[in-house]
Amino acid sequence: MAPVMKRVWGMIRHAYDTYRMLRWTLWIAGVLAGIAGVTGAALMGYANRIRAGLYRDAPEYAADTRIDPLHMTSILSGINPAAWWGSIIGDGRLPLVIGIPLLLILLRLLTLIPLGRPDNPYDRDPRRLFSDADETWIRDCARGRCEHRSLLGLWRCRASYAHGDEMHHDHHYPWSKGGATGRHNLVLLCKKHNLKKSDRLPRFCETWLLYRARLRYFPARWRAYAWPDGKAVEGDAHSGNPVGPDPDIPMDDGFDDDYYDDELIMEADE
């Protein structure tokens, strides 16, 4: 029963996130529409005031377009909401007017799809903390820099060991919700982004963006770990689960877990 309630609660949280996004979108759209309306009304009033004076004092100059170069008077005075809506329906623009907001909402909903729960043989991994070897490994693979990405994966956080920032070793799929304590679930984050993430379920979209980025900066021999799916891998000698052979890595991988070179870690990122 508890897993069902957790899933329901996760769906409620995702729905609330979507509602909050829509609320902010509508609020911003309302503010922009209000500013545009006030500005247009002010321009129309200004043009009409000048034009009225010209009609009274010098009617032969009343048609001078320099008084209203944007033709705001004729445009705003000719607005007829009913006719405008009728023209939209009549010439086929209605699907465009309705479709664009619906498409944006659909894209937002797709970004909220959570990453699937890993099929691990436990509710919580008995081991909570990553080993020193794991921490050194991710520090090397990530070049000592936070792996959080924003702007659809285009921007990577600049925090790093080299800049003196506090760095955390994060379970991408939360340990409290079944994620394994192993390299298939290890992400290097700065303190700010780790605390912000907390135990939120990772989303499929952000995981895919992280995976695509890791393919560029992870060493070739470690790219089998680029997708952080949270699964426990049998026989992963580096993660403390030596149950059987791990097909992802050779047992003699040539990697010295105690080796760390600051210049190597902070070389060109991508």
Rank of each mutant, 00 (worst) to 15 (best):
L22E: 14
L70R: 08
P250M: 01
M21L: 10
G53Y: 03
L152C: 09
H169L: 07
I265C: 15
A58K: 11
R108D: 15
R200V: 00
R49W: 08
R108Y: 12
L186M: 12
Y173F: 15
R108F: 11
R158M: 10
G254H: 04
T136S: 12
Y217A: 01
W27V: 09
A159N: 15
F218M: 02
D248K: 01
P59G: 05
P101V: 03
I100Y: 11
P95H: 02
W137M: 14
I88G: 01
R149T: 15
G40T: 12
N120C: 05
G10V: 01
T25G: 12
A142D: 04
P3R: 12
D252A: 10
R23F: 10
P126W: 12
I79R: 09
W9P: 00
A2V: 09
Y211E: 03
R183P: 01
W9T: 13
G178D: 07
W24F: 06
H168V: 08
R214K: 09
G45W: 09
L76A: 10
P3K: 11
V8E: 07
A47I: 08
G144R: 05
D258S: 13
D119G: 04
Y173V: 05
M44L: 12
A83N: 11
N120Q: 07
R223N: 03
A142T: 01
G240T: 13
A42Y: 06
E147D: 14
A159W: 09
Y211G: 00
L215E: 08
A213I: 00
P101L: 03
P250C: 01
D125G: 09
P101C: 03
L195W: 10
D261V: 10
I88K: 06
A133E: 11
K196N: 14
F255S: 01
H184V: 00
R93K: 09
R143Q: 12
G90S: 15
P114Q: 08
Y122P: 00
S77T: 10
D91Q: 11
D123T: 14
I98F: 11
D258M: 04
L32K: 04
P228Q: 10
K231F: 00
L151W: 06
V31R: 07
Y55K: 14
L195V: 09
E263V: 10
I89Q: 13
D125K: 10
H169G: 02
D253G: 04
R127L: 13
S160T: 05
N194I: 07
D236G: 02
A133S: 09
I67D: 05
W27H: 14
R66A: 12
G30I: 02
M44Y: 00
L201P: 04
A62W: 02
G92K: 01
V31Y: 08
L115P: 03
D252C: 01
G230E: 06
I100G: 02
M266N: 14
H148L: 09
G235I: 02
G34K: 00
V97L: 14
H238W: 07
P242N: 06
G244S: 07
L26F: 11
I28N: 11
L32G: 01
L189C: 02
Y122K: 00
D64H: 06
G78V: 04
L22G: 03
